[in-house]
Write a protein that binds this DNA or RNA. Structure first.
Lengths: 359, 359
DNA sequence: GTTAGCACTCTTGGATACAGAGTGCTAGAG
DNA sequence: CTCTAGCACTCTGTATCCAAGAGTGCTAAC
């Protein structure tokens, strides 16, 4: 991470690195010195460029696939680029307009927005995109419902104060009628409405509260708190994925093994469970290049992520997933704009009412 | 569809066709006459086999990629095979046991089961798998909840009698307090619990019922009925997808265009919307080979689907998706067993209580 | 009806050669 | 000290050819 400080290269070399990256990103083939002097007005000869390239290679920023090939950026080169060279430019105004337009045409559902965000992001960045629905860091119980499903099986459906919904089956050792369950639910709803999982636990431990209610109450309460905890930990929240086709067409995924990697990440994202929380806790756009952060063989894949939402209250993560050879500048613009947009939409949608009460 | 009747081939030719299909499915390379007499005890010479193969080709059941290659099954050949030649064998007992075991280790949630079913199916059939969660054909309202989100925005969360949950945002032209909304919800819940979407509509049209309640009631009722209708039409129900990696590794998807096709089908399954209902209405395992049913360019992809569930009340669809060169026999066994298993699980889970009341 | 034999076709893999792409280096100019 | 022209060198990509091999279709005999 802190390797950039000892890199000492001239302005022109920085310029050349930038050109190499831009060129390589768009063509996927190593860039030659000749190409650089032809396409860009550097006012030096190709020989000079070659000398600089040799130095850039010594610094580990570019690599040469074989002797008589041009240069391609190394992962370290990309990292240097995104940290020092890339100019953060906003998405063109007309694209912004087009995107906003799509959001105004769809029903005003948070989850629907998020799915659309992933889809638009995939198209805009021309790569795969992911997005998690927004969740509160503290979920307050709004209401829950007990349904008698069969003899000793109960379904518990809970609604959070922010509109999140969860359901879970519950096995008990006795038969209960729907009326009994409804009575219990009403009783507990009155006592627990507005509380978080932790607060419910507290309430259950207070002597007196658990007197004179049905024997399954502890079991119900336990389930409730565990469901709330799950919601707060963002588990069980589906990850929306879009645009896989875009990146599987990239030449780097021609080689058999590569595809496996990205599908693994994309399908059962065990990798996500460690990345997403870390993104949630930081401001701004996070860029993960190659196997920098993902465990083991996730080379060839880069991820650009950002958090969106309303401060602590309601937040999620979105971003693009693509080959390491990715137009980072454009990805960052897209992700950045999209997170801004989603945040705005959520803000407008949830503003005055839900604002006050969440601690 | 009714093309099989005019195919008239000898027993040995049938046998040869079977061998060709089995061999080709497992190796992905055209099968030669020599190979057939060597690997299998047909007691004839390769020349005889060649004569038969020429006839099978004339019947359109096999094709020859080029002059000096072996034969590969045509789509018609596969169809003939699955209809006339394939012996339906059950999944081996130990595999069945292993699968059941996995289901007993997981929480008893219908949706969780379905996801697991897709995952297990993908592994068992070694290809991609899909599954839709079970839905009732008639959803009865259990309970709904109105949440004040912001000034003129209300979230409606409804719970169906079978435990399905849906939520939707609602824009109204006036500000309502949470207390007012709760009062309205309580009132309407009392009147509407147990009704289907159609019955709610009826109720709303009865004179008198709509008197003396809040002005947003019609809007709430309209949203309710449309949500129930949506649930009944199985829209909005997520399709679980698993094991994409398995089939993208198959040699037939090396060619660029092919991958697109299957990803298209897999991601935004517009194709599903026409196939799933048709499978829902039929008993047994459905086999779709190549572009038989899917529109346009869905060649190279076959699908084996079956319905599962409890009669009319609660049903879904599951199946495997793979290349046309697919071990149909095994796929059918897997899909068949899995649908049986899921049906059983649902039966055990929902049996006595929910049974009686749905019309 | 079956089969041995054979000519014929087409693919596949390995050599070989060669043009082209790029570089690194050297020596000289500014 | 920096830049550049020039050139030798290396490596890839492509084309071509060739030989071996895989399979078939056909014919004639059993």
């Amino acid at each position: 991470m802190e390797q950039s400080h000892d890199i000492n290269i001239s302005d022109r070399q920085r310029q050349i690195l930038t050109i190499i990256i831009e060129e390589y990103v768009s063509t996927a083939r190593p860039v030659a010195s000749e190409q650089i002097v032809n396409g860009y007005s550097l006012n030096v000869s190709s020989a000079t460029v070659r000398n600089d390239m040799a130095e850039l290679e010594r610094a580990g920023l570019i690599v040469q696939p074989h002797t008589s090939a041009g240069r391609a950026p190394s992962e370290r080169g990309y990292r240097y680029f995104v940290e020092n060279l890339m100019s953060p430019k906003a998405l063109p105004a007309d694209e912004q307009r087009k995107i906003r337009h799509q959001f105004h045409q769809v029903a005003m559902e948070a989850d629907e927005w998020v799915r659309l965000a992933a889809s638009v992001l995939a198209r805009t960045a021309n790569s795969a995109a992911v997005a998690t629905p927004p969740r509160s860091t503290a979920v307050h119980l709004k209401h829950f419902e007990l349904l008698a499903i069969s003899d000793a099986r109960i379904m518990l459906v809970l609604v959070g104060h922010d509109g999140t919904v969860a359901q879970q089956m519950l096995n008990v050792d006795q038969d209960w009628s729907q009326d009994e369950l409804s009575a219990l639910a009403t009783h507990l709803n009155n006592a627990l409405a507005g509380k978080t999982g932790a607060e419910i636990e507290e309430w259950a431990n207070e002597p007196g509260n658990m007197h004179s209610i049905m024997v399954i109450a502890p079991s119900v309460l336990g389930t409730l708190t565990s469901m709330l905890a799950k919601l707060e930990r963002h588990e069980s929240s589906q990850i929306y994925r879009e645009g896989l086709a875009h990146i599987l067409n990239q030449p780097e995924f021609r080689e058999p093994g590569r595809m496996q990697q990205i599908l693994e990440l994309f399908e059962h994202g065990t990798a996500w469970t460690s990345i997403i929380p870390s993104v949630m806790n930081q401001e701004g756009v996070q860029i993960i290049i190659g196997d920098e952060a993902m465990g083991e063989g996730m080379s060839a894949v880069s991820v650009v992520l950002a958090r969106y939402g309303l401060g602590e209250k309601l937040a999620g993560v979105l971003g693009v997933v693509g080959p390491v050879r990715m137009p980072y500048s454009r990805s960052v613009s897209s992700v950045s704009y999209m997170s801004q947009l989603l945040s705005d939409l959520l803000h407008k949608s949830y503003n005055p009412h839900t604002g006050g009460e969440a601690e």
